[in-house]
Design a protein around this nucleic acid. Sequence first.
DNA 1: AATGAATGAGCATTCATTCAT
DNA 2: CATGAATGAATGCTCATTCAT
Lengths: 227, 227, 227, 227
Amino acid sequence: MGAVKTKRMPRAVREQQMLDAAVRIFGQRGYMAASMDDIAELAGVSKPLVYLYLNSKEDLFSAVIRREAAALAAAVRAAVHPERPADRRLWDGLLAFFTHTARHPDAWAVLHLHARTHGEPFAAEVAAMRSEIVAFVAQLVAATARDEGAPCSGEAGSADTRRVRLAEQEAAAGLAEALVGAAESLAAWANTTDRVTARQTAATLMNVAWAGLGDLMAGRSWSPPAE
Amino acid sequence: MGAVKTKRMPRAVREQQMLDAAVRIFGQRGYMAASMDDIAELAGVSKPLVYLYLNSKEDLFSAVIRREAAALAAAVRAAVHPERPADRRLWDGLLAFFTHTARHPDAWAVLHLHARTHGEPFAAEVAAMRSEIVAFVAQLVAATARDEGAPCSGEAGSADTRRVRLAEQEAAAGLAEALVGAAESLAAWANTTDRVTARQTAATLMNVAWAGLGDLMAGRSWSPPAE
Amino acid sequence: MGAVKTKRMPRAVREQQMLDAAVRIFGQRGYMAASMDDIAELAGVSKPLVYLYLNSKEDLFSAVIRREAAALAAAVRAAVHPERPADRRLWDGLLAFFTHTARHPDAWAVLHLHARTHGEPFAAEVAAMRSEIVAFVAQLVAATARDEGAPCSGEAGSADTRRVRLAEQEAAAGLAEALVGAAESLAAWANTTDRVTARQTAATLMNVAWAGLGDLMAGRSWSPPAE
Amino acid sequence: MGAVKTKRMPRAVREQQMLDAAVRIFGQRGYMAASMDDIAELAGVSKPLVYLYLNSKEDLFSAVIRREAAALAAAVRAAVHPERPADRRLWDGLLAFFTHTARHPDAWAVLHLHARTHGEPFAAEVAAMRSEIVAFVAQLVAATARDEGAPCSGEAGSADTRRVRLAEQEAAAGLAEALVGAAESLAAWANTTDRVTARQTAATLMNVAWAGLGDLMAGRSWSPPAE
DNA sequence: AATGAATGAGCATTCATTCAT
DNA sequence: CATGAATGAATGCTCATTCAT
């Protein structure tokens, strides 16, 4: 199962093998339950080599998080073509997100489940990636809303219009936050059952987003009762 | 910091103190990183007593999960008055949920973050509570939709109407699932920053729900592009 | 299984119940593996009471050894009627020994197996009983030999005769030691299988004794080769 | 006292040092009372190394039993020269047995005292060695008897002769069992006093064996009284 | 006569980490 | 480039023993 014992490879390659092994072990067992022994064995190298290249368990975990966060962000970015309409861009992004997390469940488990439970340094790494994504989604949501509501955005720049725009952006931010939150837990949940495809998951969430946009444009909203 | 060293108390009391301490330690450090020594110390008792009353680390964790899941469910149930209109019930439930999770962040961390990462027995306990809540929300969503869409439900019972009802229920279930997912991660996220109140979090989510309901009733939905 | 929970009994009775429980637990698990909790539970009393009556684990073990060693010695003594011929007395003693050890396997395990492995104090207690038995057997062996060899004991008191008597006694001592050793391990072995009765075991050993006596009288013996 | 702290030795060597230490500690204290700390310290290594090489306390105990059982069996085997007469072979075997057990009292304590009190796996290991020895002795006894009784074995093969041979073999088996039992406890006993040499012990037992053989050939035996 | 409450000390086991080669 | 040998420091858990009632 572990990498075949091949000797004498360049450092870069060995490092990737170690990270691969680490993702699997960390993803399946969590940070604390993962043992450097197991990771080294799965990587097909001796423990001292792991330490030589990656310094410590914490550094290794950090490296894993960085690599996988980057990979996920890249996958989403690559799927979104700026020339397409906003709603299509949102859909493409969601689909790419769920496809990637479905294809790399251990990586997603590390990012979503395990990184959060181990103090600032790790959580921060993930939080960075997350806010990048939230911003990206918020911008898409706003754009989508704009495209949809095109008619009323004819005379741009009036005071009223600008106020509306601002409210729209705040609402969009809220929606984006909720969307990403939902997406995250949906991705985790989708990985636990094999009855749901990435497409289906993306469609479910896209519909919620769509509904949110509808209200956003209609200015409809629910007001909580006084205390 | 820990409970004042009070000697000779009845078992039931000591047990609660131990569970209190366990919630804090487990919630802040996770199952694996939590040490029985620390829990015992925080509880103000010696380790053997913890084992005498709670048998093992796993049993202690289990007891914590059961107690906190029950407490959360009870808090939500207590907030919802059946005689109020559906949207108000949904709001009350959400508010109670976010209030409770905000007031007991360690407990929520145990339920949401840590219980899921430790094999069937623990996850199952949480899953049970979760599905109770999802069902509860789905029913509220459906009821809210019915109340809102009252006019069009005049001639009840026609074949068309029934078909519509069914579709509504399915959509409600999907919406409920997404809502709870979002709520869960929102609760976790709200706990990491102190700039958001439970009320604000609840309002954000209520608005998404509201938007979802709007679409639900309007039959609007977004269709993904062909492959 | 354990004594029915009867409250408020006189000390002497309770003490015997505790010793009964201790014999079982010590016999089956050995000194170290036996826990005072288990003994107290089997005795149907609380642990502090055991300590109140028997002071410590070591004292309890000691009490068990004393009681069981005395019981075994008594059983053997009771079986041997001084008016019977020597060979019959030897047989009666052996039979009583194997019968008692078969009927009280836990007690025998304590005496033979466990007492020896725990330092002077305990071993000494058993050694005392053992040497009492060895002496008793040696005397029987000598007497048996005398009875058998009656003819030549006519003119008592001659120098030759006395020298012979001495040699006989030494040989008898050696034989007795070997006999008792064999008896001990035979008893332990007989307890592990249920296919052998005390009678059979006694007969086997009696035959060896008989053979030994034959040689003893015949003056036959095997001389080791020089270095 | 313990091995001088020599660093960095090949695994095989360290393993033997650990086994040496384990024999001493287990032999003197028994399985339960022996602590891995003490064994490691006596071996001059850290505890983790003991676990790395020998896995667990049970495995270590097992390894000790296997090594010492093999050593004892080898010592006996090496002493017996097939070309010598049967009685000499028996003597050589006994002498080797008592010499070895006297020279390695801890090892004998482990095999005879402690291994028996710890469940199937360990007892089985010893039982195997024991039955090998019993068979070996039984065969020697039979051979000795044959040599002694040479005259009557002239007309080999007659029905009578064969029946006699069979009875002889059964009796030999019984005698062997008793002999080995006696030898075992004699060895243990000899180790507790320092007044008896292996030679003396062997001589005592050889004489019993010799006596048994005498009776065997003479067909003499003692019959128990009716119930 | 009897016990519920409580603990100090120890034990088997594991793990992240480092030398010396 | 790579590793066999080795360990300090925990960690979960148990046990004999004692108070206060």
